Each structure stands twice: as structure tokens, then as C-alpha cells.
Simulated scan of single mutants.
Amino acid sequence: MSRRELVVLGTASMVPTRTRNHNGYVLFFDGMGVLFDPGEGTQRQMTLAGVSATDLTRIAITHLHGDHSLGLAGVAQRLAGDGVPHPVPVSFPASGLEQVEHLLHASVQGALADVVRQPLAADGVVPPVHGELGRKAGGPALTARRLEHTTETFGYRIFEPDGVSLDPAALAAAGVAGPDVGRLLADGSLVVDGRQVHLAEVSVPRPGQSVAFVMDTRLCEAVGELADGADLLVIESTFLHRDAEQAGRWGHLTCRQAARVAAQAGVRHLVLTHFSQRYTDPEEFEREAREEFDGELTVAADLDRVPLPPRRRAAP
């Protein structure tokens, strides 16, 4: 059975607190296990959350500020120490290549994991690498979109193309069974007992799902584009709106801005995170977000597990 779940490893912004670790998020999407923004302490948080190194198929870094990247050194060492057999690509803004190399060689160790560097210089699809798990033709795609922060930053979106679900009763009635099912999916039609059977006769539309990941950024066009129609939006909410002037100065979103984006984009489940240490009451974020957004809402806490919403129904 496919697994589609967000595991929250940490929810603090620049300064971790007694209850909030630096950033870190693992998205399980069928065969993919994507670690986003491994801040300091990510390796320990993975252990607490029950996420193993072999679960990770990719690392995606939005930018190279420490609260989003310092944990890369420990995670890379863990990948090597656990003997992870598959390559683990790491995508990041191209301007951060020097910092990524320093992190990957931050300690004296023997074997190195097969961490494939993928510096990003432009918007678009992040291509799979040879041997990457969970990425296949026609399957979920990972895209990157440039954001507006105080350093080069990208947001990410994982989306699954629309497809079809087969109707077992219709297949049986049409006499399609065994290897013919695969041929019908591949070719769109086949001949059974002298009759042409089309895929549309024995299937129903299956809308694809999408997850958007938006970290440090000012409000900009790309935020809405990444969030558009997302089943799950994980987005920074560093400041409450009473501190909007500071948010703008430091290239961050307020809770109200994030919630308004989610409402306007038709997001189904909004996950707020990346909170400044100045705030101690999570309910303040809940109240402010509810002024703009009436969908499913999670004010994230460390070690939360957030399942993707059930698949949307296809339009009749």
C-alpha cells in the first residue's frame, strides 16, 4: 500500500528552542522519501521519528542558511555509516555549491555516501538521477521555483500526473485479465474475443496529488504558483502579522500572508512551520490563520505526522 505522509522533524527558524528543533521534514510519497531542509539536529530527530537513513531517496534544500542546511553533514555521515546502497541526490541553489561541499566533507570519515549534487540554476523540473528510487516515467515529478529571500532560494513542488483507476468489475465483464491488463494500460486498447476494448470503458479518472514546500521568502508570484491547488502546502510562518515590517525586511512571510495564499490557491491542507523563537503560544498562529483560511490546518510541532488528504474526486 502506498504511503503519503509528511513527517515533521523540526519547526524552529533561526534559533531552536526547548521544544522546537531546527527545520527538517521528510515527505513520503509512494516510493519517494524526500528530506527537505535538514537543519542542525536532523539526524537525531530522524531517530526520534523512526525515519531511517535507508528511507531517504532524495534531499532537497531550499537555501543555504544554517537552519535549513547544517544537518546535511550529519545526515550524509549517517547515509554512509548505514551503508545506504542507492544514490541520494541533493538539490540546492547553485550559488550554494561551496557550502554544500563543505558540509559533505565536514568531518574526517572513511567511506562517503553516494550523494549526487544537483545545483539548481533555473526554474523547472528537477531531473531524476540514474538509480534514484521512487522516480519513474509517468510518476511523481519534482519541480523547483525561485523565491525571493535574502539569499538565492528555491521552493519545491511534487506532483503526480492525473491517471486512471481500473474498475475490476468492468475488467471482468470485458474479459480482460492477467497480462492483458498491463497491455491495456500501456496501449489504451486491445482486442478481446474479437471485440475492441478501450481503457476508458474499464476505468475511472484518478486525479493526481501534489505537495508544495515553501520556505523562506517574501510574498511573491512564485509562492502562489507553487501552492496552486496543492493537496498539502508546507509553508513558513516565521512571524505573526503584527511583526509584518520585520518579516518584509528579513525576507519572510507572516502567518496571515501564508494563510491567505493557501485560501486563494485552493489548498486543501495547510501546514504552518518555521516559527520565530519570540513566539511561545502556537494558538496565536491558529487564530491568525483562521482569519484567512477555513480548510484543514496544522500548526506544526516537532515529530508531527501529517497524512495527505484523501484523493480528490474526479469531476463528473
Rank of each mutant, 00 (worst) to 15 (best):
F92R: 11
P93R: 11
A94C: 10
A94V: 05
S95E: 08
S95N: 05
L97E: 15
E98Y: 00
Q99H: 04
V100Y: 03
V100T: 06
H102A: 14
L103R: 11
L104W: 06
H105E: 13
A106G: 06
S107Q: 14
V108W: 06
G110C: 10
G110A: 06
G110T: 05
A111L: 15
D114C: 04
V115K: 11
V115Q: 04
R117E: 13
Q118D: 07
Q118E: 11
Q118A: 13
L120H: 02
A122L: 01
G124E: 07
G124P: 12
V125N: 04
V126A: 05
P127H: 11
P127K: 12
P128I: 10
P128K: 07
H130W: 03
K136R: 14
L142K: 04
A144V: 14
A144E: 05
R145C: 08
R146N: 07
L147E: 02
E148V: 15
T150N: 13
T151M: 11
E152A: 08
T153L: 03
F154K: 02
Y156F: 15
I158V: 14
D162I: 06
L166S: 04
D167R: 14
P168T: 12
A173G: 06
A174H: 07
A177T: 14
P179L: 10
D180T: 01
D180K: 04
V181T: 01
G182W: 02
G182N: 14
L185N: 05
L185W: 00
D187E: 15
D187F: 08
G188Q: 00
S189Q: 15
S189D: 05
L190A: 09
V191P: 00
V192K: 14
G194T: 05
Q196E: 06
H198A: 05
H198E: 15
L199S: 07
E201I: 02
E201R: 00
E201M: 05
E201C: 05
V202K: 01
Q209E: 12
F213I: 13
V214G: 02
M215Y: 03
M215F: 10
D216M: 14
D216T: 15
T217H: 11
R218V: 13
